[in-house]
Design a protein around this nucleic acid. Structure first.
Lengths: 197, 197
DNA sequence: GTAAATTCCTAATATACCTAGGCAGGGTGG
DNA sequence: CCACCCTGCCTAGGTATATTAGGAATTTAC
């Protein structure tokens, strides 16, 4: 009978699409096999296990995500870069919830070493903040706050956590303004750092 | 033979403990039954399904979480309340990862109506921010930023996402300082709101 | 055009979810 | 005090998913 023409890459790509539809945590070998019209066992020629599949999806998703992020912040600095980063971040997370969740999966150092996307995603925030003139360890602290705020935002938004009437997009913009102010008035390790109220 | 003495409450409590050990997404009827030394089918006298079990755990966890949060911010205002809230938040999330994850689960309006814990958790942040004098819609925006930052932080910390050498706790304190500054210099809807650098 | 490699299959095991129906033990009415 | 019944827990069984072993068929390579 006609073969489905599976390859590891095609399987992983389809898994990523599936993740965007049903959630990263809900991708199964069975569903993927059904999608290709083959038996479950057939997929094991291409991926070792569900866990392996998830990891590969994570690597793929990180590559895609990093691509968007890097395109967004290229040639920008300061507030401009912050805004561009944030919009690219939110857009990707909302458009590709499965892939986005995949990028947040915990991965081993070995996988990290082979995933340019993940490394790129780690390097982007500090690069983006360069124009704010923060030195270590403030830079690390600031990056952590931003990562947290962005991740928290899209996670809560994606899970329908903002039930209010106020448009989420507007709150997001205001939050960015506030973060910009925090970055410009960063409480460096020495002083108390209270700006005017 | 001797009965295990199960009740819905006891089952849900044990499920919450199990969630703290293996993760909220990994609680199973089977594991819970093993823990009680009964057969899987026996649990269905007390909960309708895994989904029902999860929802009940979410309600229980929200109650516990709200208790800690409310105790922490009672009688405090402004930065003092912010700090207390943040520490209670982080501590609960790290100490009870399964319960914390449960509180973040999407729940239906009907469940929400019957979960005082959830309602309390929704009401706490705006109450805590009262002393910052933010009016709507700024208050909503500020609450969203805080919820995002806190949630993002503990999620990333719990999944070992902060690989740097800088202590997470210290970054968390600095992030709080920065958020405090953002709150005191909140960019209200009318002006551009840039504080001194 | 045959040999090797690879794709996909059947078959089988293990675990989890869930339903239907049964037995027995502890509280309740006579 | 004892028969009764409610209900906690059980056995049995049907479904889905993950995974392995080994075989057949198709593609590829020489």
């Amino acid at each position: 009978m006609a073969r489905a023409g599976l390859t590891a890459d095609r399987v992983v790509e389809a898994a990523a699409d599936l993740a965007d539809e049903v959630g990263f945590g809900n991708i199964t070998i069975s569903a993927l096999a059904r999608r290709f019209g083959v038996k479950d066992a057939s997929l094991y020629s291409h991926v070792k296990s569900v866990q392996d599949l998830r990891t590969r999806v994570a690597v793929l998703a990180a590559r895609d995500f990093a691509e968007r992020i890097n395109a967004a912040i290229a040639g920008r600095a300061g507030r401009d870069a912050l805004t561009a980063f944030a919009h690219a971040y939110r857009e990707f997370a909302l458009k590709h919830p499965g892939r986005y969740a995949a990028t947040q999966m915990e991965i081993s150092p070995e996988v990290l070493a082979r995933s340019p996307g993940h490394r790129s995603l780690i390097e982007a925030p500090p690069a983006m903040l360069r124009a704010y003139g923060l030195a270590e360890p403030d830079l690390t602290d600031a990056v952590r706050l931003l990562r947290s705020a962005f991740h928290g935002y899209v996670v809560i938004e994606a899970s329908a956590g903002f039930r209010h009437s106020r448009p989420v997009r507007t709150s997001w913009e205001r939050g960015l303004d506030a973060l910009h102010i925090a970055l410009e008035n960063w409480p460096s390790s020495s002083r108390e750092g209270i700006a005017r109220g």
